[in-house]
């Protein structure tokens, strides 16, 4: 009997108390759980969008709606170009965030500062792109409750299209904005040596989790609204 117990304790030792069964600190576990709840919120939004789209006979063609580009002449036909730039901005800022987290693990303050600055610049660039796109669509007559676009098959479209687009990209944009604010706070804390004094950069890891989640959500939003 005692033999069996020792064999199984080797397996189950994480649950015997005295330490985290997940082997990460409290804040990181809570950040993961927050991100899960946020994933369910975004999931609910995107699934309701999908449900409404599946229950509607026609839907606008995203390539005819999202086809403009800053500084290009009026009526330019450049589908997917602008949004692909936005996507790459967010991927690159995610990469610089990983590099910042890694520099933090190496206790390399300069590396953290440099990569956090790049991440913040990427976030601001993304928000600027989104602001331009929203402004442009608004000038075309699109807003909550207003849809100037017609369905791909030439029939009249409903305002569901614009309502979902502005609600979901707006909710994502709000997350990007919060992420930029969090990253700026992290940068200030790094510059004032607060993490050096604590002896670890775990806060950067938690901010990094949030920032990657923002990038992750954009993967789904980008695919659902611009490609499908």
């Amino acid at each position: 009997m005692s033999n069996v117990t020792t064999a199984s304790t080797k397996e189950a030792k994480w649950w015997n108390g005295g330490k985290s069964p997940f082997d990460v600190e409290y804040g990181k576990v809570m950040m993961w759980y927050f991100l899960m709840s946020d994933a369910f919120t975004f999931g609910a939004f995107l699934i309701s969008y999908g449900t409404v789209r599946f229950s509607t006979n026609g839907w606008p063609d995203p390539n005819k709606v999202f086809k403009s580009f800053p500084f290009a002449p009026e009526g330019v036909n450049a589908p997917l170009v602008f949004v692909s730039i936005m996507t790459f901005i967010l991927i690159v800022s995610s990469v610089t965030m990983v590099l910042a987290v890694h520099a933090g693990k190496m206790m390399d303050k300069k590396g953290v500062v440099r990569n956090m600055i790049w991440t913040i610049i990427g976030g601001i660039a993304f928000l600027s792109c989104q602001a331009w796109e929203w402004n442009h669509l608004h000038h075309e007559g699109a807003w909550w409750g207003m849809n100037p676009f017609i369905n791909a098959d030439g029939t009249a479209s409903t305002t569901n299209f614009t309502n979902f687009f502005f609600t979901i990209t707006g909710f994502h944009g709000f997350h990007v904005f919060s992420g930029v604010v969090i990253n700026i706070i992290m940068l200030i804390m790094t510059l004032t040596n607060q993490f050096e004094k604590r002896g670890h950069y775990l806060m950067i890891e938690k901010a990094g989790l949030y920032w990657h989640f923002v990038d992750l959500v954009w993967v789904f939003v980008f695919t659902c609204f611009y490609l499908l």
Binding site: S48, G50, V52, F54, S55, T56
Partner: peptide, 9 residues
């Protein structure tokens, strides 16, 4: 949800 939407249509 997607199959429900489709069935509603």
């Amino acid at each position: 949800f997607l199959s429900d939407g489709n069935s509603f249509k």
